[in-house]
Design a binder for these strands. Sequence first.
RNA 1: GCGACCGUAGCUCAGUUGGCAGAGCACUCGGUUGUGGUCCGAGUUGUCGUGGGUUCAAGUCCCAUCGGUCGCCCCA
Length: 451
Amino acid sequence: MADSASPPSVVKPRAISGFPEWLPAERLVEQRFLDIIRETFERFGFAPIETPAVERREVLTAKGIVDKEIYALSRLAAADDEDPSTDLALHFDLTVPTARYVAQHFNRLVFPFRRYQIQKVWRGERPQAGRFREFTQCDIDIIGNGALDLLADAEIPAVIDAVFSRFAADLGTGGFVIRLNNRKLLQGLLEAAGAATPAALAAALRAIDALEKVGRDAVAAELVRDAGLTAAAADGLLDRLAAVTDPAGLDGLAETALFEEGRAEVAQVFDGLAALGVPAGRVRLDLTIARGLDYYTGTVYETVLDALPGIGSVCSGGRYENLASTYTRQTLPGVGISIGLSRLVARAFEAGLIAPGPATPATVLVTVMDRTLLADSLDIARRLRAAGVATEVYTEPRKLAAQLKYADAKGFRYAVILGEDEKAAGTVQMKDLKEGAQTTVPLAEVAVHLG
RNA sequence: GCGACCGUAGCUCAGUUGGCAGAGCACUCGGUUGUGGUCCGAGUUGUCGUGGGUUCAAGUCCCAUCGGUCGCCCCA
C-alpha cells in the first residue's frame, strides 16, 4: 500500500559506532602520518607484507583469545538449512597473522626477517572514546631463526623514536617518552615478593598494569587480595617499582636468577640504544609496565605522548621467545611493536593537538572564466602538473565568484585566473587565496612561481 | 557480557504544566561588468529513532524495541 505521493525512500546514512571514517581534510592528515610511518620503517630496512583480512578461526584462537572479540565471516545468502557457523574470521591484530605467515613461508624467508605491515584490524568490543571496532595498526617485527640478538630489542625503540620525532617535527604532535621494561625483572621481583603460583603472578601483573589508573593504594590492596602478597611485601614491592627509572637503579636488587637475567638484558638494550644514537632520556626504564598479552617474555614497550597522557600508550609491543610455536616446530623468537594510528589520530584531533588542513591535495585551482578559453586553462594545468604541482581545473560553467568560493571552501592555496585580457597579454592572474594578493605572471613562468 | 545516561533539520541543540515544529551553523539565490573569506537581505531543509498505549490532543506521559555516548573488562 505505498502512498504514491510519498517521497522516494532513502537509506538513512549513519555512521557505524566504532568504525571511524574521515572527511577528506582529516584523511589527508592521517595519510601524512602513514607516509612518515612507511618511509621510516623502510629507512630501517623493514620490508612490507600484507596478509588477508581473514584467517582461519583456528589460527586466530590458538593463543587463547576470547572468541567474542573476534568477528566471524559468513555469507548472508547462506541457505536456511546450511550450517551458519564458519571457519573464517577477521584478524584482530597483525602479530598472530604474521606468526602464521612466517611459519608458512619459513623456507622462503631470509632471517632475521624484518617486516612491516600497515592494515586494518577488527575487534568485536564495545566502542568507547578512542576505542574502535575497526582500526589501523602499523606493525614492525624482527623475527630470528632459533635466536635473535638483543640488539634487535634496542633497534625497535630506535625506529619508534625516529617515527615519533618526525610526527613532532612535521605534524606537531610534540614530545613523547618510550617506556621500557623487561618481564623478567617484574616477574623476578614478584616471585621474591611472594607471588608463587602462575595465577598469582598473572593477578599481580594485572594489578600493576593498572597502577597509573587506580593509584598505589588500590594496587597494594589488590596485590594482597588477589596475588597473595603480605601487606608489607606489597608495599616494599611498590616502593622498588617506583624508585627505578634507569638501569643503574637496578644495581643491588638482584633477588632471583630471573631478575638477574632481566637486569643483564636491560643493560644490553640500553647500551644498544646509546650506540644507535637514541637521545638519552627518550627511553625510560619503568618497572610498572606489565602489558596484558601473555606472549611477551622479555622486553616490553609503551609509548606515551606528553600532550595526550590520558589516551595511554599509542605504540606498544615487546619480545616473545617463540612467536609461532602454534604453527611450526621451528623456534622463532621475535621483537616488535605496533602503532595504534587510528586512536592516535582521532584523539589528537579531539584534543586540538593536530587540525585538519585543506580538503584537497592540490595547491592550485585553475579557473575557467570563459568556456572559449577552456583549452588555455587545461594547458596551464598540464604545465603545472608536469612541473610537479598538484593542480585542479574547475569543471562547471559557473561565475568566477562561485569558482573562487569553491577554491576557498576546499582550501586551495592559489587560484589561476585567465580571461581575454590575460590571454591577449600572454599572462595569467595568480591569486594567493591565503594572503589575498594577486600578481600578473607571464604564462611561461606559471610553474616557476607556483612550484 | 554488566551498569549509567541520551535519541528533535545535513551538524550542534532549544522546545515551559501535554495545546500550530524552532534557533544557530551549513546550503541556495541576491546586494548589476572578471574576484573567495567578512557583512546585509531572502529562501530551502523534519517518519520529533521505531512500534504500541494513555488522552479531545503526545516531541512532551507510560511500555517495548532499535540505535548512540560513557564507564567496567580488555586493549591500540
